[in-house]
Nucleic acid binder design. Structure first.
Lengths: 339, 339
DNA sequence: ATGAAAGCGCTAACAT
DNA sequence: ATGTTAGCGCTTTCAT
């Protein structure tokens, strides 16, 4: 088991100083030509790689960032991660994935990783701050970017979409198709994103002077199975809806599933709209009409803001709002003729 | 912007030496009681966290492992990651995600991270080694565990499933339902996993003395859209199959989609079986019959082997084979009466 | 039970 | 253009 070479091994081989090797390898442009390429050659030959712990200790930075999500099992984040990773790589950074599972301990653990030098910055997608930090007001100024979610009064930069407007648009699409009985399966309320989507639905209904009968707002939790159950409940209503707007795609999948199960045609009997345009939304049958977020762009944008922050730059505190697009696919259609 | 506290700050506050603080915080049991709790108190009060770069440099380990996959956008890996992460956390390790996108440069980059102290070990799920390393035979002995895939003659420990037997079982299930015309949409051949699944199908067919007409083996690539196209091709055959075994769930989704599109009933006209039991397999309509892998278990098992390796322990080179289960759901049924 | 001192491997300030 | 030197913050001998 041969030892990994150290910088001084490379230096000795050529009779130069470690400093020169360091300069040569860092591309500082301070090393003259005969020496430079000989160093590069030997480094390659020995397969030398600078030890990152030593470098990080010396430079006081880790060249890594943390991307913290609520549930790493949710594929939605993968696309965002791809964008983050791409921007990070271009800047020479690595990305560490953090998974909180909504556990406050883990949430604050990841903040600790900022302090202990594990990472230079963080992209936070959990929608909340550790209570401890928030209480002591020591969040402002940290190299943290909030993405997807909103954290009010945090003093942190945000990258997000306009959940309210996107939901409103989605519901308007249903209204334009002639639907008047439009129900909503919400996300976990009163959580911010869910609330905005719910309010967008309400606004669209109010804007078209459509009534919202009792039971048309079903409290969900973004989960597929819950969507299925709640859809069933909607169908059992005395006046069931002809269209259902779901707070996310998973619950929309559940709704479509329940409709199939009951032999109701989608969209001929009931239209369904989702939100997020996750992986496979296009693949179910019929393909899901849903609000598409520019996930990779959100990731990239978040990362560039974070790099800016890390570099000590000032960053706008007005949220960056990325555009959404309503993907009209197969689960929405004209309202059935009134019975 | 107050500076982060250092170990000597904690030490000074109490008039003890940094060494004592280090010992107290590491739970070495070498610090006596009056001192111990006072150190712990002050550390908490100052919110002190040891700098990881310094610690890693000194201890020569990073307490991180690398989990390298081919495509981070594939949700299949998320469940594996969950298992890896759980086992890692329990041992005090963090998990770094690596994404190669099948790019050889990136593949060897991640190996470099083993040498530069970024990570102490690696769980490799890409099914191949960087050519450079392989050529120089410097892989054996590295703290690397191969999961899901197989790398022949690598001298590395493996955690996997029996793809051949699982495929064979899945096809036998179709045969038991009375199917005789069973086609297969493969993964990317001649890649190892795809080949094993294909061979399992062939073996089941041969075992039942069933013919494999021309065109019944369609070369796919695990992608949804390809599955759709190839399913169409199968249906256009003079003697179309009554059942299709797909090398993975995505292509099965594509196949089901195409069947729907053409108005063919699933499973009444054609049965479909997938492989992997990914996220949402249960959610499509009808729910997909598929081979389920114990993904989280594979992750956990890989991680514990890796920990063993890192600790310098010897590890069996016979592959650890995890059990699979055929989940019989809604896309398979008895063969239709012959026309 | 605690302290003093060394040193992990690197980079950057300062010299030349 | 290159070498010398110091030191990042920690853990771990070794000494007491």
């Amino acid at each position: 088991m041969n030892e990994r070479p150290r910088i001084k091994d490379v230096a000795k081989r050529l009779g130069v100083s470690p400093a020169t090797v360091s300069r040569a390898l860092s591309g500082s442009g301070l090393v003259a030509e005969p020496t430079l390429s000989r160093i590069l050659d030997v480094a390659r030959e020995l397969n030398y790689r600078p030890n990152v712990s030593a470098r990080n200790l010396r430079t006081q930075r880790s060249m890594s960032v943390l991307m913290v999500v609520r549930d790493i099992g949710n594929p939605f984040y993968l696309e965002v991660m791809k964008g983050v990773e791409q921007a990070a790589r271009e800047a020479g950074y690595s990305v560490l994935m953090g998974n909180t599972e909504n556990d406050p301990d883990r949430e604050s653990e990841y903040f600790d990783m900022l302090r202990d030098g594990h990472a230079d910055g963080m992209i936070l997608m959990t929608g909340k701050l550790p209570a401890r930090l928030e209480a002591e007001g020591l969040v402002g100024g940290l190299p943290v970017v909030v993405a997807l979610e909103t954290i009010e009064d945090s003093g942190l930069p945000h990258v997000q979409i306009d959940n309210f407007a996107a939901a409103q648009d989605a519901v308007r699409h249903l209204i334009e198709l002639g639907h008047r009985r439009i129900a909503h399966i919400t996300g976990p309320l009163p959580e911010g994103m869910s609330t905005l989507r719910r309010d967008g639905w309400r606004a669209a209904m109010a804007g078209a002077k459509l009534p919202v009968p009792d039971g048309y707002e079903q409290l969900g939790d973004y989960q597929l199975h819950t969507g299925q159950v709640l859809c069933g409940r909607l169908l059992d209503l005395p006046e069931p809806p002809t269209a259902i707007f779901c707070a996310n795609d998973e619950s929309a999948f559940g709704a479509v599933h329940e409709l199939h199960r009951r032999g109701r045609a989608v969209p001929d009997d009931v239209s369904v709209v989702g939100f997020d345009d996750i992986y496979l939304s296009e693949a179910i049958f019929p393909p899901l009409t849903t609000v598409s977020q520019p996930r990779a762009d959100i990731g990239r944008e978040s990362m560039s803001m974070l790099l800016e922050l890390i570099a000590g730059g000032k960053v706008a505190l007005d949220p960056i709002v990325m555009p959404t697009e309503l993907k009209i696919r197969g689960t929405t259609g004209p309202v059935a003729k009134p019975n």
